[in-house]
Simulated assay, not measured.
Amino acid sequence: MIVRSVDRQIRGFYNSCRHRGAPVVRTPTGRGRAFRCQYHSWTYDTFGKLVGLPDERDFGNFSRCAYSLVPLQIAEFGGWVWIDQSGAASPLATVLDRGDASMAAMEQHGFSARKTFKVRSNWKAVIERLGAGDSAMEAVGGIHWCLPNSLFAVASTRSVLLAAWPLNERETEIELVLAAAPEDAGISLDSLHSDLLPLLDNIAGSGTEISGDNQQAEQLAALWSHHMGPVAQAADAI
């Protein structure tokens, strides 16, 4: 669970009550000053501290401080929230190459838009075929990552995440998230969505993996190139 606390800082926690492990939050988004587990009403504030529980005296020598939500290492950069679930990653500032022109430009990006749509395909098929498209993105330039369930690309004035999430065995939700520099703040995801939908439907239904030497790879590279705008500097994936 990701929270912006009253001090305006973003914090992340495992969504698991410290009492019996039940989810503390059960809705995708929302607002609130505290989070109450529905199981036994243990309540946490937005800093992750345990602030209330029924019949506390029955627990004997009990310290609330020892039962705060388990935190995640989290950072903000370029309009995105970066999360380390392992607890072993180096600080984000030491991982990102801010000397690269695309990374330097990304410091000016802020969240701009989010859009979701469905593809009639098993999510694994979408991921396998898009995941193999990392080589296709090399033609676009800029910085890009191929993550387990998504593609992430950075150019000089915008950065885009394309992620796939399973809905059921036959349907996949595609999520598009855009961060942009101030001059691109009004940009819409509608045209990117319109171009992506037939391509993803084609990929999902064709049974053909994207690779560097087929038409779908060329389409994907051309699509990214068109929608990402000018690239500050070509760079290898990090």
Score class of each variant (00 low, 15 high):
residue 172 T to A: 03
residue 207 G to S: 06
residue 127 I to P: 00
residue 150 S to G: 06
residue 36 R to E: 02
residue 145 W to H: 12
residue 140 V to N: 01
residue 96 L to Y: 09
residue 122 N to T: 07
residue 32 G to K: 10
residue 191 S to D: 08
residue 7 D to I: 13
residue 12 G to M: 08
residue 34 A to V: 11
residue 98 R to C: 03
residue 219 Q to R: 12
residue 82 W to C: 00
residue 198 P to Q: 14
residue 53 L to N: 03
residue 190 D to K: 11
residue 136 A to N: 00
residue 75 A to L: 09
residue 231 V to G: 00
residue 45 D to G: 03
residue 198 P to G: 04
residue 224 W to F: 08
residue 147 L to H: 02
residue 134 D to E: 15
residue 147 L to G: 04
residue 210 I to G: 00
residue 64 R to C: 02
residue 20 R to Q: 12
residue 143 I to R: 15
residue 162 L to A: 00
residue 110 G to K: 15
residue 25 V to N: 00
residue 183 E to H: 10
residue 86 S to F: 04
residue 92 L to T: 07
residue 211 S to W: 10
residue 136 A to D: 00
residue 218 E to P: 01
residue 169 E to G: 02
residue 6 V to I: 15
residue 50 L to M: 10
residue 31 R to I: 13
residue 78 G to V: 14
residue 88 A to H: 11
residue 23 P to Q: 12
residue 139 A to M: 09
residue 204 A to G: 10
residue 52 G to I: 13
residue 230 P to F: 08
residue 75 A to R: 11
residue 111 F to H: 12
residue 120 R to G: 02
residue 30 G to H: 11
residue 212 G to F: 11
residue 222 A to Y: 01
residue 57 R to I: 08
residue 33 R to Y: 04
residue 173 E to C: 08
residue 123 W to M: 07
residue 95 V to F: 06
residue 190 D to S: 10
residue 20 R to Y: 07
residue 209 E to Q: 12
residue 165 W to Y: 11
residue 61 N to I: 10
residue 15 N to D: 07
residue 5 S to L: 09
residue 66 A to I: 07
residue 205 G to L: 11
residue 57 R to Y: 05
residue 61 N to S: 11
residue 60 G to R: 15
residue 14 Y to S: 03
residue 184 D to R: 15
residue 115 K to F: 06
residue 5 S to I: 09
residue 75 A to H: 09
residue 66 A to V: 08
residue 187 I to D: 07
residue 13 F to T: 06
residue 72 L to C: 02
residue 48 G to C: 08
residue 234 A to D: 09
residue 41 S to K: 11
residue 212 G to P: 01
residue 184 D to E: 15
residue 14 Y to K: 09
residue 36 R to S: 08
residue 74 I to K: 06
residue 121 S to I: 05
residue 225 S to Y: 05
residue 116 T to R: 15
residue 222 A to K: 14
residue 55 D to A: 14
residue 108 Q to W: 01
